[in-house]
Simulated scan of single mutants.
Amino acid sequence: MSHFKDQSAGYLVNHLARLMEQALAEAIGPLGLSPGQFPTLLALWERDGRTQAELVREVDVEQATLALTLKRMERDGLIRRKPNPDDSRSRLIYLTPHAKALEERALALAAGVNDSALADLDDKEVPHFLSLAARMIQTLRKGSD
């Protein structure tokens, strides 16, 4: 890597994210899942029955990107949409029984990818790294408000 690459948080985080996405794809692919679906699944496993607008905010993606992801997830039998009783202009997104049944295995496989990526860090470095990454995310979220 050039000196700039070594010193660029953006480059390093992006490179790390690409490598982790590849590893996650290999791990969860046999379940019929893709890394692009994973943030939405995590949000719905945490709290099912969200609107698309809520998911856009939670997952930090553009509305059009999420719309395509949801369309594929619906095609793949992972979600279903129901009318929102509180707002006739929106629909609530729910996991199918199939998607709910995948949660435990998918999370275990993702944890394995995380464990592999963090394997060379010691017990103090792991929480420090995670804390720093979370702070960076919060900082960038504040900047886009």
Score class of each variant (00 low, 15 high):
4 F>V: 12
136 M>N: 07
73 M>V: 00
93 I>K: 00
94 Y>Q: 04
116 S>H: 14
135 R>P: 07
142 K>I: 12
92 L>C: 02
49 G>R: 05
81 R>N: 06
30 P>V: 04
50 R>L: 13
127 P>S: 00
85 P>C: 02
68 L>T: 07
142 K>A: 13
73 M>D: 00
15 H>I: 09
30 P>N: 03
15 H>C: 14
103 E>V: 04
8 S>Y: 01
97 P>C: 02
35 P>G: 05
127 P>C: 04
115 D>V: 08
15 H>K: 15
63 Q>H: 14
18 R>W: 08
115 D>N: 15
140 L>V: 07
123 D>V: 13
133 A>F: 10
11 Y>E: 02
90 S>T: 15
118 L>N: 07
9 A>C: 11
4 F>R: 11
128 H>V: 15
61 V>H: 09
134 A>R: 15
128 H>M: 15
88 S>T: 05
32 G>F: 03
105 R>G: 00
36 G>L: 07
108 A>I: 05
129 F>Q: 05
10 G>S: 14
50 R>V: 03
36 G>C: 04
62 E>R: 11
23 A>S: 14
38 F>H: 14
4 F>M: 15
66 L>C: 02
83 P>R: 07
99 A>S: 04
13 V>T: 12
81 R>Y: 06
21 E>N: 10
16 L>F: 09
82 K>C: 04
101 A>L: 05
130 L>T: 04
5 K>R: 13
78 L>E: 04
133 A>H: 07
79 I>T: 09
82 K>M: 09
62 E>N: 08
131 S>H: 08
68 L>D: 14
78 L>V: 03
56 V>I: 11
85 P>G: 04
66 L>Q: 01
50 R>W: 01
12 L>A: 12
39 P>Q: 05
63 Q>G: 10
25 A>G: 12
77 G>K: 02
138 Q>S: 13
130 L>R: 14
44 L>C: 05
140 L>T: 14
32 G>E: 13
21 E>C: 09
99 A>P: 06
137 I>L: 15
34 S>F: 10
139 T>L: 14
120 D>V: 10
10 G>D: 10
9 A>G: 08
122 D>M: 02
12 L>D: 02
90 S>Q: 11
37 Q>G: 11
126 V>C: 03
26 E>G: 11
58 E>W: 11
86 D>H: 12
35 P>S: 04
72 R>P: 02
59 V>T: 07
71 K>T: 12
4 F>W: 09
124 K>W: 14
98 H>A: 13
80 R>E: 08
123 D>K: 13
28 I>E: 02
133 A>K: 11
48 D>F: 04
14 N>H: 14
10 G>P: 06
22 Q>F: 08
42 L>M: 10
4 F>P: 03
69 T>E: 06
5 K>C: 11
142 K>W: 14
129 F>P: 02
88 S>E: 11
3 H>E: 15
90 S>H: 12
141 R>H: 09
130 L>I: 07
100 K>N: 11
96 T>G: 01
133 A>W: 08
136 M>S: 12
9 A>Q: 15
108 A>L: 06
27 A>C: 05
6 D>M: 10
80 R>C: 10
13 V>S: 13
13 V>C: 09
58 E>K: 11
70 L>C: 01
52 Q>M: 12
9 A>W: 15
135 R>Y: 15
92 L>H: 00
49 G>S: 00
3 H>V: 13
33 L>A: 04
70 L>D: 00
49 G>E: 01
82 K>I: 09
